[in-house]
C-alpha cells in the first residue's frame, strides 16, 4: 500500500474514534428524548458538569470555594488530598442522580404537556444555568482529568502498520491513541448494558412503555415522574462517561460543551429515537468530517470541522427528514 492510502486509512480510523465520542453524547440525548420527548440541549453541559465534579472530588476541592472566598474574604481551596478515582466516580454518579431529581422537581414537572419547542428552549436555559453553576462550583480553569485510562500512541499498532507499506516508500506507521481505543470499548460496553437493562429489567420495560405512549403508561400505573428521574439519572451517567472520555483527551474545559453541540447533527442523521442510529450517526459524522478536512480542507483554508457536520445534516434533512432509521411520518388531521 502507498503511504497515501495508509494515511487515508489513518484518517478514517481517527474519524471513527472521534465518532465514538460523538455517539456517547448523542446516546444521552436519545435516552431522554425517547422517555420524555424532550430534546435535552443541556446534555453536553451535563457532560462538562459531571467531568468538573469528578475532578473536583479527585483533587479534593471545596465546592464554591471561589465564591466563598470572595464573599467572606477567606482563602479556602481544598478539604484534603482528594479521593481515589473509583470513589470519586461513585460520588459523581450520586451528584448526577441528585441533579436529575432536582431537574424533575424544579423544571420538568411544570413543563409537562408543553410544546416540544418550549421544552427545548427550557433546556437551553438549563444549559446556561449549569454552565454558570459548574464554573462557580469548581472554577473555570482548564483541568486535567486522569482516571487511569491508558493514553498516548500505540507503539504496537505503529509497528504493525509500518510493515504494510509497499517497497520503496518511507512510512512511519499509523498513530492511534490508546485512549480512543478504550473509549470505543467502553462505549460498546455501555450500549450493551443499556440494551440489556431496557430489555430485561422491570424498570427497563417501564421505560420503554413510557417511550411508546405517555398516557397509556400512566394508565397502567407507571409513575411518569419517577421514570423521568431515572432516565435523567441514566443520561447523567452517560454524560459522566462521555465527560471522562472527552476530559481525559483534551482537558475539562468550556469547549467540551461546544463539542457536544456536534451531537445534534449526529442525532439528525441517526434519528432521535434510535440508539443504533446514534452510534452509526456519530461514526458517519466523525469519519465524514475528518475525511472532508483531509481532502477538501487544504483547498478552502481548513477548519471545515467547524461546520461540516451541520451542513451534512442540513442536506440530509432535505431528503430524509425522519433520519436514517426513523419511521416515515404519516401526518393526520
Amino acid at each position: 500500500m502507498t503511504p497515501d492510502i495508509l494515511n487515508t486509512i489513518e484518517v478514517i480510523l481517527n474519524g471513527l474514534m472521534t465518532g465514538v465520542m460523538y455517539s456517547l453524547v448523542a446516546l444521552g440525548f436519545v435516552l431522554i428524548f425517547k422517555a420524555s420527548g424532550i430534546f435535552n440541549y443541556a446534555q453536553g453541559v451535563m457532560a462538562l458538569f459531571a467531568a468538573l465534579t469528578l475532578v473536583g472530588f479527585q483533587t479534593g476541592q471545596i465546592p464554591f470555594s471561589h465564591l466563598i472566598n470572595e464573599i467572606f474574604g477567606t482563602h479556602v481551596h481544598n478539604w484534603g488530598p482528594g479521593l481515589n478515582s473509583v470513589l470519586a466516580i461513585l460520588l459523581t454518579i450520586l451528584v448526577m442522580i441528585l441533579f436529575a431529581w432536582l431537574v424533575e422537581k424544579l423544571l420538568l414537572q411544570y413543563l409537562v404537556n408543553q410544546e416540544p419547542i418550549i421544552l427545548f428552549m427550557a433546556t437551553i436555559g438549563l444549559a446556561f444555568f449549569m454552565e454558570g453553576l459548574g464554573d462557580l462550583m469548581w472554577g473555570a480553569d482548564i483541568k486535567t482529568l486522569d482516571v487511569g485510562i491508558p493514553s498516548g500512541g500505540s507503539f504496537w499498532w505503529e509497528d504493525v502498520t509500518r510493515t504494510w507499506v509497499s517497497e520503496g516508500y518511507e512510512y512511519y506507521g499509523m498513530y492511534i491513541d490508546l485512549l480512543d481505543v478504550w473509549a470505543a470499548g467502553i462505549a460498546v460496553l455501555l450500549v450493551t448494558i443499556l440494551t440489556l437493562f431496557s430489555q430485561y429489567t422491570k424498570t427497563g420495560r417501564a421505560l420503554r412503555a413510557v417511550a411508546d405512549d405517555h398516557q397509556a403508561a400512566l394508565t397502567v400505573g407507571i409513575s411518569l415522574r419517577s421514570i423521568w428521574v431515572i432516565v435523567w439519572s441514566i443520561a447523567g451517567f452517560v454524560a459522566l462517561v462521555a465527560g471522562i472520555m472527552w476530559g481525559s483527551k483534551s482537558g475539562v474545559q468550556f469547549s467540551l460543551s461546544l463539542i457536544a453541540l456536534k451531537a445534534l447533527p449526529v442525532l439528525i442523521l441517526g434519528g432521535f429515537t434510535s440508539i443504533p442510529g446514534a452510534i452509526i450517526g456519530g461514526l458517519i459524522i466523525g469519519v465524514g468530517e475528518k475525511l472532508f478536512e483531509f481532502w477538501i480542507g487544504p483547498l478552502v483554508g481548513g477548519a471545515t470541522e467547524n461546520w461540516f457536520a451541520y451542513v451534512l445534516a442540513l442536506f440530509f434533512l432535505m431528503f430524509r427528514p425522519q433520519g436514517l432509521f426513523g419511521e416515515r411520518i404519516i401526518e393526520r388531521v
Partner: peptide
C-alpha cells in the same frame, strides 16, 4: 469588588434561571 470571573458565572446562572422561569 468581586472578581469579574465569578460575576460572569453568576450572570450565566441568572440568565439560564430566568429563561426557565419565564418558560414555566
Amino acid at each position: 469588588g468581586w472578581s469579574p470571573d465569578i460575576v460572569a458565572h453568576l450572570i450565566f446562572m441568572i440568565v439560564g434561571g430566568l429563561i426557565m422561569f419565564f418558560l414555566i
